[in-house]
């Protein structure tokens, strides 16, 4: 691929042909404010915040503008600044002012853009404020949907479509009434959503936010233990407890993506009902027992059921070595080929 040179606000940068101006700027460490752009997704060009002036005549958007040799881009032209500022002001005039208690506080893209374009109380107070009051959708066990915070960037819709191919959500209605919706705007839990949470992690505000999440004090890099795919994860840890999981962008297996189990299925680790010792049934009631006691019982009962009446189902959650041993045990000790495995996530 050949490279081209373009100028952004007087700075000459080089970019690969096929890149957009926004991509070229980002690759060179230049910030052009944007809200609906996401590196994993095709550009939508809807938020209009990445507006720039091209070659001193044309107002256009940088997220869809392909670089061209010699192109001159201004992000600070007065007309550009005016459009950008008004656009962000409009978003804020329709957005709840609950930043301190908001899940997205300090990582919110709207905050970042607002700071960048220089929003002041005076500039905001000129507007008629109006925030929606759509009830929170809490139907999903892992995340909540707050339409009132939604800025309609469509990143969630594109994630569900382009990356996940699920299409649980889409745009509905139109104009100022438009919102991200399932069929008939039913609770998300009643849709075909698989709760992968890919939209949640990409939401630039907190219209999609993880339930009851705590910020970790540190992160531990690990591999998800749910299935044979082996996704890279960062476990968020606070004290000695896991409080969150984040996909590892660097991991070539999943490049940051996770499924519902990997992302949200960590609460069993510190769950009070988790088994920590073997249980053995005595007089019809399960009671705690030692490992020796439990293993003795297993040997006793297994030897009564050798041959075709026995079957083993192995788990994807244990290592390959353990799985190998289970099938060896089933065939060699129990004398049957009835062995299967649950790795069909």
């Amino acid at each position: 691929m050949s490279s081209v040179t373009i100028t952004i606000d007087g700075i000459k940068i080089s970019a690969e042909e096929g890149m957009t101006v926004l991509q070229a700027a980002q690759a060179n460490g230049l910030y052009i404010p944007n809200l609906c752009n996401h590196p994993d997704l095709r550009p939508a060009g809807l938020c209009r915040v990445c507006v720039v002036k091209q070659d001193d005549w044309k107002i256009t958007i940088s997220c869809k503008l392909p670089v061209k040799e010699g192109m001159v881009i201004s992000t600070e032209d007065p007309a550009v600044q005016q459009i950008r500022k008004n656009t962000v002001e409009l978003l804020i005039a329709n957005h709840p002012m609950t930043c301190l208690t908001c899940e997205a506080d300090s990582k919110c893209e709207l905050q970042r853009v607002a700071h960048y374009v220089g929003i002041t109380p005076d500039s905001i107070n000129r507007y008629r404020r109006s925030v929606r009051s759509i009830p929170l959708d809490t139907s999903n066990p892992f995340f909540d949907i707050d339409h009132n915070k939604c800025i309609m960037c469509g990143i969630c819709v594109r994630t569900c479509d382009e990356l996940q191919n699920i299409n649980a959500i889409d745009y509905a209605q139109r104009g100022v009434a438009s919102l991200i919706s399932t069929l008939g705007n039913k609770p998300i839990a009643e849709s075909r959503c698989e709760s992968c949470g890919e939209c949640v992690v990409r939401c630039p505000v907190a219209a999609l936010a993880t339930k009851k999440s705590l910020q970790p004090m540190r992160e531990v890099r690990s591999i998800c233990s749910y299935c044979g795919v082996g996704c890279g994860i960062h476990l968020g840890v606070r004290g000695d407890k896991i409080v969150g999981v984040r996909g590892d962008q660097e991991n070539p297996v999943n490049r940051g993506s996770l499924c519902v189990k990997g992302r949200f299925g960590y609460r069993f680790i510190n769950h009070p009902e988790r088994l920590t010792t073997p249980l053995v049934k005595k007089d019809g009631v399960l009671v705690e027992a030692s490992w020796d006691e439990a293993l003795d019982r297993i040997v006793e009962k297994f030897s009564e059921h050798k041959g075709e009446k026995f079957a083993a189902l192995a788990s994807a959650r244990i290592t390959n070595e353990d799985n190998y041993l289970i099938q060896k045990f089933t065939r060699a000790v129990m004398g049957t080929n009835n062995i299967d495995h649950c790795a069909r996530l």
Binding site: N167, I169, D170, A172, S181, L183, G184, N185, S191
Partner: peptide
């Protein structure tokens, strides 16, 4: 997808 049918209809 169901969501698309509603998206268009609405």
């Amino acid at each position: 997808p169901e969501s698309r049918v509603y998206a268009v209809a609405s």
